[in-house]
Simulated scan of single mutants.
Amino acid sequence: MANDIKDIAHAVQAAFALDLFAVPPRVLALGEPAHGVDAPLRLRNALFRELVERAGYRTVALESDCVAGLLVDDYVATGAGSLDGVLARGFSHGLGASAANRELVRWMRAFNDGRPASDRVRFAGFDGPLEMACAASPRTALTALHRCLADHVDTGLLPCTAETLDRLLGPDDRWTDPAAMLDPAASFGRSAEARELRLLADDLGALLDTWTPHLVTAVPREVFDRVRLYARTAVGLLRYHYWMADASPSRLARLSGLRDHMMADRLLALAERGPVLVHAHNSHLQRDISSMRMGGMPLEWWSAGSIVSARLGEDYGFLATAFGTLRHQGVHAPPADTLEGALYAHGAGTCLVDAAELAAALGSPGPGRRPSPYFGYAPLDPAQLPRIDGVVFMGDVPEK
């Protein structure tokens, strides 16, 4: 079997990745099985550079706050701000501390220097403004949406004033109390103010939609796209906060699904302007239903990738990543009778394999799923191979 895999293993390069598809997908998703290591991020950087230089891709989207990411996009496009500043404030989930992400942002700024706007590379966060311990206040998105509409639409059509929004929103800490993640009673999401804000956000979004013919000529397309992002984010955050206050057994599964729904909406909007490389955990990008255990309960929800794939069809491509070892986390050489074990045995280190060819090489009944001694590493499920386009395998993944 090792020899068979050697025959189908290629370097992780844009040419081999795009050969997996009849036409280059508008959304090419590159997954990772664990967060917190830079080696797969550096591989992502190299692939993105090749996709930019050889295949016309111009956007990279990361599993990071979509609103904060606008700071990074401004920096790579025009040099606004500073590298250290955008790394500190433009990323969520601690991603700004990654040396590989610093390298990516620096390269993008250098690539764009002196280029016309139409040819620049773009950065996007595609996660909601959500952290593990809390969800953000809807203030930033909601007030930015209202401000744009107030500047360009008859104020008599606005459902409320900016002062009304400010009063209903109140202090941000009422929205960001970390106790609400585990205790529905601590959530502000079903208060009278939050319920009224949900209606106002819906009305503001509808006003944006109905005035699209005017707004697309009154403001640059870039500005209009950002206002659409603010509208989606405001509605999504208020919906998320509402369900944080839910005390039913389905609460965590629903919240997981709502997060991926926000991700999918962002990716579909990004795809409207051209091909995009997306990088996130495999579980957010896979076509299969996602699952995990949280608080002792099994959860299932449809991932962003499954939603986008259902909408875009062949314009969505998914490359899943698997590791051989992650020794600093106790993940040692995989058992030979697993998918990772078969790939590790071929000895090529890092490679890209057509998922259908890999399934054929593994044979029937095929290998079992690898157990993981580390909760932060999710082994690849061999049963998903028919719904994966390619597998990126990294043999021995260093800590840094």
Rank of each mutant, 00 (worst) to 15 (best):
A360F: 00
E222K: 13
G349L: 03
S92D: 03
L207A: 13
A88H: 04
L312V: 06
L182M: 14
R120L: 11
W243M: 13
T350G: 06
D166N: 11
A218S: 14
F323D: 06
S250K: 13
A88V: 02
P373K: 01
M108P: 06
F48R: 09
L207Y: 08
R273C: 00
V216Q: 13
G390R: 01
A359L: 09
M132K: 05
P116Y: 04
V276K: 04
R195Q: 10
E53I: 11
L197Q: 04
H35Y: 09
E50S: 06
R311N: 00
R293W: 02
R239T: 14
L200Q: 09
G313I: 07
S92N: 06
M181T: 05
D119T: 03
E222R: 08
A55Y: 12
D354C: 11
D381H: 03
A342E: 08
M262L: 06
G363K: 03
R89S: 13
L207I: 07
A342C: 10
V37S: 14
L182D: 14
A360C: 04
L299R: 02
V397L: 15
C148K: 04
P159K: 05
Y374S: 15
P138I: 01
S118F: 00
Y344I: 01
M108W: 00
S309E: 13
G85Q: 10
L267Y: 05
R195Y: 07
R122C: 09
L326P: 15
S187M: 00
C134F: 10
A80G: 13
F123C: 05
